[in-house]
Design a binder for these strands. Sequence first.
DNA 1: TTGATAATGAAAACCATTTCCAACTATTGA
DNA 2: TCAATAGTTGGAAATGGTTTTCATTATCAA
Lengths: 151, 151
Amino acid sequence: MRHCHKWGQKFQDYGFRLTVSREAILEVLSNSNTHLSAEDIYLAVHSGNPAIGLTTIYRTLELLEHTGIVSKFEFGHGRAKYELAEEFSNKKHHHHLICKKCRKVIDYEDFITEEKEYITKAEIGLQNKYGFDIDNHIIHFYGICPECKTG
Amino acid sequence: MRHCHKWGQKFQDYGFRLTVSREAILEVLSNSNTHLSAEDIYLAVHSGNPAIGLTTIYRTLELLEHTGIVSKFEFGHGRAKYELAEEFSNKKHHHHLICKKCRKVIDYEDFITEEKEYITKAEIGLQNKYGFDIDNHIIHFYGICPECKTG
DNA sequence: TTGATAATGAAAACCATTTCCAACTATTGA
DNA sequence: TCAATAGTTGGAAATGGTTTTCATTATCAA
Ligand SMILES: [Mn+2]
Ligand SMILES: [Mn+2]
Ligand SMILES: [Zn+2]
Ligand SMILES: [Zn+2]
């Protein structure tokens, strides 16, 4: 095992090999504090290792999402965005505030205590009523950001 | 004014013409109680009026979303889904429970009282802190449905 | 080493959505 | 009534993010 990052073990536990490309992609994701598109990651990885192709980025992201190491978001802007999952990130549990005009996405960590209370109650109730095993949720607020209001 | 549907007025208030195609599309949307893709709507509309093209479906849906008559959802399954907005639908305020395996989407209206309490507080707080004008929110729960668990 | 299996890059395919454009339709004002 | 104007339309083509294909290469266990 090359590195002993927290994600490395989990990834290998799934039977996947921790290759140079895959580590480079995870490196980019953990050094970023925003949401990255596949192309963003491709360009960043490329500067250190130009041999890595875009196909590998997509394939790796699929595995990382499947293993729960990264979270994939569709904000409705035509391309998926990725970020390290809560468990592997230095970011806290957060949700998203999205400007409908300029498409800016803000991470916010406010009101998480109140949220947790509501989410927990809803999850338990929905699991009982609909028989789902719920393991994830998404909350997005949509509006117009201050820059777009005045601009 | 051909019909006096609640949406007709709003649509024309925006300066758009209420054409046969557009009414046909709205008719399909209001007779459905699930989320429809552009192609779903195209096929349904086609049975009554084969002259209406897919391009018109997309164009009309864009206008309807812009005027707030329909809501557009990206569940992450490759195609957008549409449903009549709360104000024009006979459905109540609801959110979505999504199976990660079979991609089934369940509308639920449970825990809306508790939700409203949390959402209102968060909206006000976020508007103050980040200066956004928030007018919409989305809550999705992801998990595995009972059929996919046993199947 | 060796052989089996997994991972890779480049090019091509895919496919939902958008764009273009020429024809058509509704509205307006002489 | 009749243009002139502006809005709407369908089909074909283009777009662009993502996935598939396939031949080659890297990894790992024996
Ligand atoms: Mn985020
Ligand atoms: Mn719904
Ligand atoms: Zn903005
Ligand atoms: Zn299912």
